[in-house]
């Protein structure tokens, strides 16, 4: 978790936050593939960016996705109390990718995310689903809490539209751009200081990654099928789900730095 705050010391990471935010907002606004709920959500190709940027730029992508979504709200004319949950949801949309890559135990490819093998694509798709679910449940919970759109309606909608764009566009985009970004020296393990990315004494990267993988989809299923919108249980479920996600972020760690180190040694 330290890296989320330590990154603000580095000029390149701050600029990456700004660039990620600007790209996300610039592609989010003009390109809409299909409208799912008119005026509320649609399938947008930009939803691939938080996941692939998360894997490549780490914490800069988490902050960048959050700010980019906020800018989208400002320029799209939809700024409101729901934007706070949009900020948080998109923060996790960008965060889950770098926390999970390389830490999924038997589900991990053990390789860099250059999408040169089927195992990498499988790992990527699992991460895209987990990141989409985290974003979906946080926004849907917040918007339900505000009494704007029921969780039952918005949760699956965001989940589907995020997952489709991220899972379909992610592998080819990573295949084409990851080697170039690596050559530019802009992968977060190359930009950030080693001590800011080191494990702490209480780090449990695999437990945290598997926990994040399970919490959001479970929250989504319970929120849709078990608890009714605006109920006390729905609110409590969100509180517990968010708390668990934060705990897993705190005890989690990033897998890419170790993979890059391994590749350099070889």
């Amino acid at each position: 978790m330290r890296e989320l705050f330590a990154m603000w010391r580095d000029t390149r990471m701050i600029l990456l936050v700004a660039v990620v935010a600007a790209i996300y907002a610039a592609v989010l606004l003009p390109f809409k593939l299909f409208t799912v709920i008119p005026g509320i959500t649609s399938i947008r190709p930009a939803n691939v960016f938080p996941v692939i940027f998360g894997i490549m730029f780490g914490p800069a992508a988490a902050w960048g996705a959050a700010i980019g979504n906020l800018i989208g709200d400002v320029f799209g004319g939809t700024l409101g109390p729901g934007s706070a949950f949009g900020f948080l949801g998109n923060f996790f949309f960008g965060l889950v990718g770098y926390k999970l890559w390389g830490n999924l135990g038997p589900l991990s490819s053990g390789e860099e995310p250059n999408m040169r093998s089927v195992k990498q694509v499988v790992e990527y798709v699992i991460i895209a689903v987990a990141a989409s679910a985290a974003c979906a449940v946080i926004i849907a919970w917040g918007v339900d809490l505000l009494g704007l759109v029921p969780f039952t309606v918005l949760g699956p909608t965001i989940m589907i539209n995020n997952t489709l764009a991220a899972a379909v566009l992610g592998p080819p985009l990573l295949y084409l751009t990851y080697p170039r970004i690596k050559d530019m020296g802009l992968l977060y393990p190359d930009v950030m200081r080693e001590e800011d990315l080191e494990e702490t004494s209480f780090s449990q990267p695999v437990v945290a990654a598997l926990g994040m993988l399970v919490v959001s989809p479970t929250w989504l299923v319970l929120g849709i099928y078990v608890f009714s919108p605006q109920s006390t249980m729905q609110m409590a479920l969100g509180g517990v789900g968010l708390l668990l996600l934060v705990v897993f972020v705190v005890i989690g760690n990033q897998g890419l730095p170790a993979q890059l180190k391994g590749a350099n040694i070889r």
Binding site: A21, A22, I67
Partner: peptide, 15 residues
């Protein structure tokens, strides 16, 4: 704030 300001300035260019 600097990141937000820079993103807001980059946004029209990227758009």
């Amino acid at each position: 704030c600097f990141a937000v300001g820079t993103a807001l300035r980059l946004f029209p260019t990227l758009l």
